[in-house]
C-alpha cells in the first residue's frame, strides 16, 4: 500500500486521473457490450446519432485525461511510480479510445446489416465478441486493483482470441463463397471480426501498460498480434 503524498493536492490530482481512466474504461466496456448485443437483436439497434454521441463521450475522457496528465507533469514533476502511472494512464486512454472506435464501427455495421436484411450465421462472431468482452472486463478490473498477475494472464490469453478470430474469419469467408446472396452481410461480419481481434490487441496493450506502471518492466509490445487475415 502506497503512502499518501505529503502534498494533498498532488494526491488528489493523481487520484482524479485514475478515476477518470476507470470511468472511461466502464464507458468503453458498455459501448462494446451494446454493439455486441445489437448483433443478434435488431430491436435494440440504435441510430447512428446515438452511436456517435456515445463515442464522443469516450473521446472527451481521453482529451480530459491527457490534459490532466499534462498539468501534473508541468506542475508537479512526478517521479518513479507516479511518473510511470501517468505515462501509462495516457497510453491506456489511447487504447480505450481505439477500443471505443472499434465498438462504434461494429455498431454501425450491425445497423447496416439489419437494414440490409440478409440472413447470416452470426454465432461465430458472437462467440468472438463474448471472449473479447470478457478480456476487456478483466483488464479493467486488473487496472482498478493494480493486479499484475491478472494482467500477465490476460496478455497471454490474447493468443486464444487470435486463434478464434482466424477460425471464425475463415468459416465466414467460406460462407461468403458458398452463399453469394449473403455476400454483403458476410463482408460486414468479416470487418466486425477484425475489429474484435484488434480490440483484443488493445487489451494486451493495456495489460502491458499496467505491468509497466506497477513494476517498471516493459513487456514486448504487440508481441501477441498475429494477423494472418
Amino acid at each position: 500500500m502506497n503512502k499518501q503524498h505529503t502534498v494533498r493536492a498532488f494526491e488528489e490530482a493523481l487520484s482524479g486521473v485514475r478515476a477518470d481512466l476507470l470511468r472511461m474504461g466502464q464507458l468503453t466496456g458498455k459501448q462494446l457490450a451494446a454493439a455486441a448485443a445489437f448483433l443478434g437483436n435488431d430491436s435494440t439497434a440504435p441510430d447512428a446519432t446515438a452511436i456517435d454521441a456515445a463515442d464522443n463521450r469516450v473521446d472527451d475522457f481521453e482529451a480530459r485525461i491527457e490534459h490532466e496528465v499534462q498539468q501534473i507533469l508541468a506542475l508537479r514533476q512526478p517521479m518513479a511510480n507516479d511518473l510511470r502511472s501517468l505515462l501509462s494512464f495516457v497510453r491506456m486512454a489511447t487504447d480505450l479510445e481505439r477500443i471505443a472506435d472499434h465498438a462504434k464501427n461494429i455498431a454501425k455495421r450491425v445497423v447496416r446489416m439489419h437494414a440490409n436484411g440478409e440472413s447470416v450465421d452470426v454465432s461465430g462472431t458472437q462467440a468472438l465478441a463474448a471472449r473479447v468482452q470478457a478480456q476487456l472486463a478483466a483488464i479493467l478490473e486488473a487496472v482498478e486493483s493494480d493486479d499484475v498477475a491478472a494482467a500477465r494472464a490476460i496478455w497471454s490469453r490474447d493468443a486464444e482470441i487470435d486463434a478464434l478470430f482466424e477460425k471464425t474469419f475463415n468459416d465466414q469467408l467460406l460462407n461468403l463463397c458458398r452463399v453469394p446472396d449473403t455476400a454483403v452481410n458476410c463482408t460486414h461480419l468479416l470487418f466486425i471480426d477484425k475489429s474484435l481481434e484488434r480490440i483484443g490487441d488493445h487489451v494486451t496493450n493495456v495489460a502491458e501498460d499496467l505491468v509497466y506502471k506497477v513494476t517498471g518492466e516493459r513487456m514486448q509490445r504487440n508481441q501477441r498480434i498475429s494477423d494472418s487475415s
Binding site: N2, K3, Q4, H5, T6, V7, F10, P78, M79, A80, N81, D82
Partner: peptide, 11 residues
Amino acid sequence: LTEDYITGRFG
C-alpha cells in the same frame, strides 16, 4: 524508501 522520498511521500 527511495520511491516514497522521490515521489513526495516522505514522513
